[in-house]
Computed example of a mutant assay.
Amino acid sequence: MTDHLSDLRNRLVIGWKSPRTWRLNGPTAAAYPVMEIADAQPVPFPGFDRLILDYPQLQAVMREHRYASWRTALSSVVGIYLITDTRDGRHYVGKADGAENINQRWGVYASNGHGGNVELRGLDPSTFRYSLLRVFDPSTPTREIDESESHFKRALDTRNHGLNRN
């Protein structure tokens, strides 16, 4: 089984010819017309404080229609996030600030797995877990966000025992 088209699962609507037939063989089913691909059921956004995603979930949030409200919420804030490598428990503390919101920053991680971070480049992102430590309004001064990022790096000791170099 593959997850290649998993975002389309349970959404195919076909023109069913016989109300008494409940299953079809492949060659017969191939002749039935596809009427539509139904909208995916939206997944409710859990809130910033409850958001914990593994790498496949992050990729789904960034591309699937059912997570549109999540992208809207993540686009409305900047802040400090945590990436945990679940293989060994090491942490990476990062930030999205200025013109880059959380949705934009996490979109880069979803596409390449490392977001351009040197310490994350050689690691397998399939073992990463993403969460938010603190969110800010986009109008928050960069200095305040930088101070918060430094605080979390110190508190979690990610420079000595984690994945932060700076």
Rank of each mutant, 00 (worst) to 15 (best):
D7W: 15
P138D: 10
D97C: 13
V43L: 06
D49W: 01
Y32L: 13
F152Q: 05
A99S: 06
D49I: 02
E144Y: 11
L132W: 00
R121K: 11
R90V: 07
G122V: 04
T84G: 00
A30M: 13
A38P: 05
A68S: 11
V78R: 00
M35A: 07
E36S: 12
Q104G: 09
D124Q: 10
T84E: 06
R105Y: 15
S6I: 08
W106I: 03
E119R: 13
D3K: 15
T86I: 00
R71Y: 14
F45C: 03
A31F: 10
W106S: 03
R121E: 12
L12D: 12
D39S: 09
S76A: 15
Y130L: 13
G107K: 08
N160H: 05
E64I: 04
H151W: 09
W22M: 05
S18P: 02
L74M: 08
E147R: 08
R87F: 03
A60S: 15
Q59L: 11
N103V: 05
E100A: 08
F45R: 03
T127M: 09
L12C: 10
A40W: 13
T28I: 14
I83G: 01
R154H: 15
H161S: 11
L123N: 02
R105L: 14
L53T: 00
P138E: 13
P138F: 06
T140R: 09
D39P: 02
P138H: 07
P141S: 13
R134D: 02
G115E: 11
G122W: 04
W16P: 00
R23S: 12
V13C: 12
W16E: 09
V61S: 07
V108Y: 10
M1R: 12
P42E: 10
W22T: 05
L120E: 01
T158D: 05
F48I: 00
T28A: 09
R23P: 00
N103G: 02
D146M: 06
P125G: 06
S148T: 03
P27R: 07
D54L: 10
D49Q: 02
G98Y: 10
E119N: 11
L163F: 00
D124N: 10
D157R: 15
M62P: 03
N117D: 12
M1V: 05
D124L: 13
K95E: 15
G115Q: 08
L24C: 12
S148Y: 05
E144A: 14
D7M: 15
T21P: 04
V61C: 09
A29R: 06
N117S: 09
G47R: 00
G26K: 13
V61N: 02
G115T: 03
P19I: 13
N101C: 07
L24G: 04
V108M: 09
A60M: 08
K95W: 01
F128K: 00
S150N: 14
P27A: 12
S111H: 12
R121M: 13
Y67R: 04
A68G: 04
L156P: 02
V61Y: 01
L120F: 05
V93T: 05
T28S: 14
E36R: 04
G162I: 02
T2H: 04
V108F: 12
R129S: 15
V77W: 04
V108C: 14
D54T: 05
Q41P: 06
G113I: 07
L120A: 07
I102L: 14
A38H: 08
V13I: 14
R63F: 15
D137K: 15
L82Y: 02
L53F: 14
